[in-house]
Amino acid sequence: MSAALDALAVDVGGLRLKHPVMGASGCVAFGRELKRLGIADDLAAIVTPSMTASTRPASRRGVLRESASGLLAPTERPSLGVDRLRPTALPWDDDAIGQVVVSIAGTTIGECAEVAQGLRRNSLMRRVAAVEMNLACPDAKNSGRPFSHDEFQATKAVARVREELPRSVPLLAKLSADVTDVADIARGCVKAGATAIVVGSPLRAIGRPFGPHQHIDVAAPSGGLSGPAILPVTLRAIWDLRAAVRSGRLAPVHLVAVGGVSSAADALAALAVGATAVQLGTALLHDPSSARSVVDGLSEHLSHNGIDSVLDLVGLAHEG
């Protein structure tokens, strides 16, 4: 590894990355499309689409709509069941893809644990560098309220999944940014065994009504807003979490920013408020080469400012 790449290397809760730029769940599939485009190596890791206990179709047709500086899309999507995985044909089993973080989800705590249990078998954990738990999913036993909006339920869900995974596998808890106090939710997740916190997820939203009957095709409760428009919300959540760590209210934990990051400047801002890594989502859908430009921009920033490591940038905004 070159000196330049050494300067970009990070550790996210036990997940070692060659640089701090990852591909977000649902935006890079299982990495094979990136390989066909010749850009699989641009990302330090990919996060797979969220997997459930059994394969699920979507209940309605998926529609994407552009919004001002953002993208409106259904958050309810078809999912591949862990029960369909075969050790000899894992969808991410390709040397060109790099680090793989498997996203898991469920509508009950028991289902989340069932997915983790299905992955636990060594033959299925091959090439799995970490697990990301999508806590933005609605909890069927809590009136459909997302796990990430309820400290008690989020804590229980993480604890159950942690029990099912090998202790050596990093567990990233993915939370929502649009809550009253994200540090409260994160504190429970860390106590339950999460090794890193990922923030956030698409903000609940609906599309603008259109046509003579004012029809909404990207509708609640399954619509979400992502893209540059939500970056300030992501930065605020990361800032709050870093501040909670500094005050002792939250145990030291690595943070990952996802939501609106689309340029090197955005990534630098996320690092400054406390993130150790970022995930690109909508940016990759808009321009698959954006990961390379973000990584190059980070490298140039270090070089031009005489900074030895990207880790020296983490939390700088709190020092002023």
Rank of each mutant, 00 (worst) to 15 (best):
M1T: 01
M1D: 08
A3N: 09
A4H: 12
L8I: 01
L8H: 02
G13M: 15
G13D: 14
G14K: 15
L15V: 03
R16H: 14
V21G: 05
G23R: 08
G26W: 07
C27Y: 11
A29Y: 07
F30A: 02
E33D: 15
L37M: 14
L37G: 05
L43H: 06
L43E: 05
I46A: 00
V47F: 13
S50R: 09
T52D: 07
T52N: 10
T52L: 07
S54K: 15
T55G: 03
S59I: 02
V63K: 04
E66R: 15
E66I: 04
E66M: 14
G70W: 06
L71M: 11
L72M: 06
L72H: 03
L72F: 03
P74F: 13
P74H: 15
T75V: 05
R77D: 00
P78W: 00
R84T: 01
R86S: 11
P87R: 14
P87Q: 10
A89E: 13
W92M: 01
D94W: 03
D95N: 11
D95I: 01
A96L: 09
V102L: 06
S103H: 13
S103F: 05
I104G: 05
A105K: 08
G110H: 13
A113R: 09
E114P: 06
Q117C: 07
L119S: 07
L119V: 04
R120A: 12
R120E: 11
R121V: 03
L124S: 04
V128R: 10
V128K: 12
E132T: 00
D139F: 02
A140F: 14
S143H: 07
G144S: 09
G144R: 13
H149N: 10
H149E: 14
E151C: 03
E151G: 01
F152C: 08
Q153G: 02
T155A: 01
K156V: 02
A157H: 13
R160G: 00
E164C: 10
L172T: 07
L172I: 15
K174I: 00
K174H: 08
T180N: 12
T180F: 15
V182S: 07
A186S: 07
G188Y: 07
A192V: 04
A196N: 08
I197E: 04
G200T: 08
L203E: 13
A205W: 10
P209G: 06
F210C: 09
Q214V: 01
H215V: 14
I216N: 08
D217Y: 07
P221L: 03
G224C: 09
L225S: 05
P228Q: 03
P228R: 07
P232Q: 10
V233L: 14
L235A: 00
I238H: 09
D240C: 02
R242Y: 08
A243K: 12
A244D: 05
A244K: 05
V245K: 04
V245S: 04
R246C: 11
R246T: 05
R249I: 00
L250F: 15
L250A: 13
A251Y: 11
P252Y: 09
L255S: 09
L255Y: 11
G259N: 08
S263L: 06
A264V: 00
D266W: 12
A270P: 05
V273Q: 02
L280G: 05
G281N: 10
H286Y: 13
P288N: 12
S290Q: 11
R292L: 02
S293K: 12
S293H: 14
S293V: 03
V294T: 01
L302M: 08
S309T: 06
V314M: 04
L316N: 11
E319F: 06
E319L: 12
G320A: 00
